[in-house]
Design a protein around this nucleic acid. Structure first.
Lengths: 246, 246
DNA sequence: AGCTCATGTGAACGACCTTTACATGAGCCG
DNA sequence: CGGCTCATGTAAAGGTCGTTCACATGAGCT
């Protein structure tokens, strides 16, 4: 019964050496399995092979551990969005689409982070560092929207970039949280969450005046609103983002 | 110390008489205050003036109480969406906009229900009645989308109504869950959640080919895509849903 | 009047969160 | 090398919860 503990102790010594990190990793795994609500401080301690009181040397309480994870999540989130955006290469619309997909991919592949960030009830303004990380992540979307807004075709009113960013964020979060994760994914859909979001964003962009489906034959620098990637990279079938109208 | 309990008992007798309902109401209040995660079965019992074991005569466990609330929430949700839709009167687009607003209004005014329905981790397919209620609510959006899809202007491909419904749902849920409730509402925005969602939906609809901002002078039955409500009821300023492009 | 069964009680178990007093040992200073 | 100090870990204990079980109560039927 207790030889395991003894053995662990032997392997590790009285001091763990890297408990904080071990706890974060353990918590991440537990949240991925059972959600932020089901995760327990005691379990994380057990998993790290220490007593239930040890975590309190590294985190004020359970909530602080949770918000640490959320913060780390926002940092990784920012990194992924940033890589997807790639400063708008090869062209703004393609890169923008990639950001949307990266958003969903993150929600799907890092359920624990996503959960801690958006569904754990951790108030974003609890921690200044957390809030800053959250803002940095959002700023990627904002910057992308800024660049996109600058490309609105002549004759069309230019939408506020901030509004565009919030719209895109709400679409991505809505799809992720309703259809792309956990039991929510069980709702049966006529298309995958990725396709759903892609179509949604494309229709939205078209509503802003971007000639998404009919690529203009014009060419040159950026000013021609949508360079000829519309058919190749972003997978828009001719006739509209949702395929043939039957 | 115990005279309060005695008094309660005296007021009420050994049997509560309506405990199930009292528990649901108590839980609703507690969830509104502290979120579904923070709500405790014991608290609900205390609030109803009964022992901690009493609730088990009416609910198998805490989760069943939660999913009962979610179910009731979906029923009220359906009622409100349905009233807002009003079978497409006075015209489809106006009614559609009203449904979007009703969605947000519900999320804002009934945070406890919304929380139980979408953020409590209750699996929708746990309970057949719950699932049915959830589907009935979604079907309002679906039906509205169906009617709207039928109005796509000639020459524009007709989008699948199901897809439209899912898009609208994800927008509404995204805005509600990110900006319209609890601490999430603290994120400072350039516009209210209602305005944000309204603009989002209008841009989206325009992307589908609906001439949202330039109302056609045509009139008659439904076939003229957007009857002259666009400027009156739905509050779209000329020049686009987001106001002047500065 | 008496029976029955739905409904409520109290006590108890195990798990969790958190605090407190105490133990250990790694790193530094002389 | 010897000893001090302080960050880090432990055990124990108090409080809350969820849940179960044996038992109490009394409303409604016969």
């Amino acid at each position: 019964m207790s030889w395991r503990k003894e053995q662990r102790r032997a392997e590790r010594g009285y001091h763990h050496g890297n408990l904080k990190e071990a706890l974060l990793q353990a918590a991440l795994g537990l949240i991925a399995e059972k959600g932020a609500a089901g995760f327990t401080f005691a379990d994380a301690a057990r998993m790290a092979g220490v007593s239930a009181a040890a975590p309190y040397r590294h985190f004020r309480d359970r909530d602080e551990l949770l918000s640490s994870i959320a913060q780390r999540g926002f940092e990784q989130f920012e990194a992924r969005l940033s890589a997807a955006w790639d400063d708008g290469r090869p062209d703004t619309v393609t890169a923008f689409e990639r950001v949307g997909k990266a958003y969903l991919a993150f929600a799907r592949e890092e359920p624990a982070f996503y959960n801690a960030m958006f569904e754990s009830g951790v108030p974003v303004d609890a921690n200044a560092a957390l809030q800053a990380a959250s803002e940095r992540a959002f700023n990627i979307i904002r910057a992308a929207a800024e660049r996109l807004a600058a490309l609105t075709p002549p004759g069309t009113p230019r939408p506020p970039a901030m509004m565009m960013a919030l719209h895109i964020w709400s679409m991505a979060h809505g799809v992720a949280s309703l259809f792309s994760r956990g039991d929510a994914a069980r709702r049966k859909l006529p298309m995958s969450p990725d396709e759903l979001l892609e179509a949604e964003v494309l229709i939205y962009l078209r509503g802003l005046g971007f000639p998404i489906d009919r690529r203009p034959a014009t060419k040159g620098a950026e000013p021609p609103p949508v360079p000829p990637e519309a058919s190749s990279g972003s997978g828009v079938p001719p006739g509209g983002p949702w395929g043939k109208p039957k």
